[in-house]
Design a protein around this nucleic acid. Structure first.
Lengths: 132, 132
DNA sequence: CCTTGCATCTCTAGTCACTATAGATGCTAC
DNA sequence: GTAGCATCTATAGTGACTAGAGATGCAAGG
């Protein structure tokens, strides 16, 4: 397959380090790619998307278990609707909580930047914005 | 000070484990509290808010360095406006990126839950929603 | 007072998710 | 075919906790 790429190309395309890619394969987040006769990994297009997804999830602070659940939604599209919906709803609730907190933080950062005209910041309520 | 609380009470109020609280103190995220004559820690109200803030930041996947920057905005309210604004703007850009990704994920989860009426999920585009 | 017992203390070691290094082998281009 | 960078496996190290061991603190009952 000519369009298959090496682990180095995959790393460059996604910004993910090579050992991390192998680590994700080891713990089962990335499926094992095919190998050449000389035992080097060859990745296909779907690996690029999947790795990008995993990276964004990690950046957003999702637990490994949550990432597995989300990937399971892709891996088992023939699962009964109920099961998939239940997982999706749990994840959605989590996503909504995160959105609310980020919005609060965003508002406070914007307020700080906006009211900074005088020369000194009067007060910072970042902690209060996120402490609940 | 009667309103001071022990590390155990702080742990219960914030849901943070006791060794983690001591760890945050060790790495300088939480200020050292005063001690009793017998050397046990006594926390004040501001510690509760600050620890809650740190926890939410960790859950949202902020790097330790980012958390330090955000806390610095609180710790140095007398800093010149420019410096504070610069930090706040950097953090704000980061927060906005996260918000955009979470919104994309939210939309896709909602679409999946919504179109699931038939009995099987037709297709899952979660990966595409977050792969970019 | 003094004990009983749970809470804290410090210190060391273990876990999880990477990340870096070492030494061997693969692959492409002269 | 060989120079040289890429990839391979395997092991060790880092950052951020997390769990234990053994010693001391401290409120409550006798």
């Amino acid at each position: 397959m000519m369009q298959d790429i090496t682990i180095g190309q995959l790393a460059r395309e996604t910004g993910c380090k090579i050992p991390t890619i192998r680590y994700y394969e080891q713990i089962g987040l990335l499926p094992q790619p095919r190998r050449t006769a000389g035992n080097t990994r060859r990745y296909e297009a779907n690996h690029v998307a999947r790795l990008g997804f995993i990276q964004h999830c990690r950046e957003l602070g999702f637990a490994q278990n949550a990432i597995r659940e989300l990937l399971a939604l892709t891996d088992q599209p023939d699962e009964p609707c109920e099961a998939v919906t239940k997982i999706a709803e749990t994840r959605l609730a989590d996503v909504k909580r995160r959105l609310a907190r980020l919005e609060a933080l965003k508002s406070e950062l914007e307020r700080m930047i906006g009211t900074c005209a005088g020369g000194r910041v009067k007060q910072c309520r970042i902690i209060e914005a996120l402490a609940h």
